[in-house]
Nucleic acid binder design. Sequence first.
DNA 1: AACGAATATATCTTTTCCCATATATTACGT
DNA 2: ACGTAATATATGGGAAAAGATATATTCGTT
Lengths: 125, 125
Amino acid sequence: MGKDIFVPMNILPSTLYSAIAHETRLRCLMLLLEHDELCVCELTHAIGAAQPTISRHLAHLREAELVSDRREGLWIYYRINPELPVWVTNVLQETANGVRGVAPFTEDLAMLKQMPNRPGAPRCA
Amino acid sequence: MGKDIFVPMNILPSTLYSAIAHETRLRCLMLLLEHDELCVCELTHAIGAAQPTISRHLAHLREAELVSDRREGLWIYYRINPELPVWVTNVLQETANGVRGVAPFTEDLAMLKQMPNRPGAPRCA
DNA sequence: AACGAATATATCTTTTCCCATATATTACGT
DNA sequence: ACGTAATATATGGGAAAAGATATATTCGTT
């Protein structure tokens, strides 16, 4: 008993789309698509918004089950929920294609790259 | 002069996603993905909402440039904007995959199929 | 020109969302 | 135990979105 059956997760289209309808939240997700894991201060620096703003939008994404989080010391790392249905992953990937080279998404990546004192620090540069 | 240069159309992610964040509007688009062209009364019947409701949501989609419309007599036919950027089309298609067999989208298709007196009437049954 | 059918818009109310700011929580170092 | 850094939550106000209903527009028919 207690067989660990695999229950595929379910996401309502309206949940996904109202989440990524907000540019700040989409910017977070686009950053997380390129960098598996990012902590709040990295996202805050890259996007250039106030910390509570980023934190609240991350909470929104977390409640929508689009991202998962993990604490490591003082830092909390977010990543795209690895159990997302395929169609959701595809939508995010297609969006990344759509915004490639477009502001403010490109700038976010640049800001992150030039951020000093990054906590997790990219292991393999 | 007046060279007819091809100017690719541009759609902001937030425009697309706030449009399809609303279930009624997504239902319209999903119906239009399967049936190239539908008039307002068909969409109204399939979805089962009040006519002004459908009309207003279609206006929203039109202003977002996600659909185009064409008048033929009393009827106004809507279709998915044929000039959408590829990534947008792909997002819609992926969404269709995601909602295949899911309520209320499946039911909408069934309701449309059993609608009497459809104006355009499917030419080739 | 009058009527009816299909669709669109306007108005009002209610709700939801967002920003800014302040404050709370959690964990590490001393 | 205290201080501080990283993050989270709470609050209050303002703007945008949505539903319901009424009314307007547009076109075909007689």
